[in-house]
Design a protein around this nucleic acid. Sequence first.
DNA 1: TGATATACTATGTCTGTCGTAGTAATAATA
DNA 2: TATTATTACTACGACAGACATAGTATATCA
Lengths: 109, 109
Amino acid sequence: MISSDVIRGYNDTIILFLLLKDPSYGYEISKNIRELTKEQYIMKETTLYSAFSRLEKNQYIESFYGDETNGKRRTYYRITPLGRAYYQEKCEEWFVTKEVVEKFIETSL
Amino acid sequence: MISSDVIRGYNDTIILFLLLKDPSYGYEISKNIRELTKEQYIMKETTLYSAFSRLEKNQYIESFYGDETNGKRRTYYRITPLGRAYYQEKCEEWFVTKEVVEKFIETSL
DNA sequence: TGATATACTATGTCTGTCGTAGTAATAATA
DNA sequence: TATTATTACTACGACAGACATAGTATATCA
């Protein structure tokens, strides 16, 4: 399991990635993260939902209600053009970050 | 310049790396980081010194005073065996982290 | 009927980063 | 000789993000 401080700067990016193709909602995103990483990373519920509100405040995502008639009503999120631009920036930043961190990692220990 | 939230989980690792060979002190470590990363990452002074005290509290490093007779007396830090073990762990964790993050990064945008 | 899965919200704590400011000594420069 | 820059820190407080805990509400399944 990965300590979350490491991932901290990428939680928003992870969520945005999962919204690139289709809108989604909390539970589904959370499940997707778990499955995609084979349980190597599990985003805490509170972390996820607080990320949603931050992303929405920044206008990187928009919310709307699902029309499911059964079950509790879901809040769906859709990525905005601004969100896509931000996602792209973070992807570019990632390569720089990786380079920087790897200057301090010994591969041969 | 990299946003520090991204590096957050690796500041301690960066410092430990720079102590692997020889003891060092704040200013020198700070300079080494700047130079090694070609100014791509600059650790803030307060971040650095608070990392020192955290690392010392965890017994990953030990401090001692330099014997320079001129200039302000420096506090040197030496990595401990526990620190080396921790450093190694973080290196191993890094590869997992990288794998995880890259599941959410689009290379072709 | 009770457990489990879904789908959240609210509240408060903690940690690490960082802004700001201050202290103190030496070296360089005008 | 005065002041500015560089070195080498310490103190304090603010803030953001992660997370623990708890609670609400619906549906499904054994």
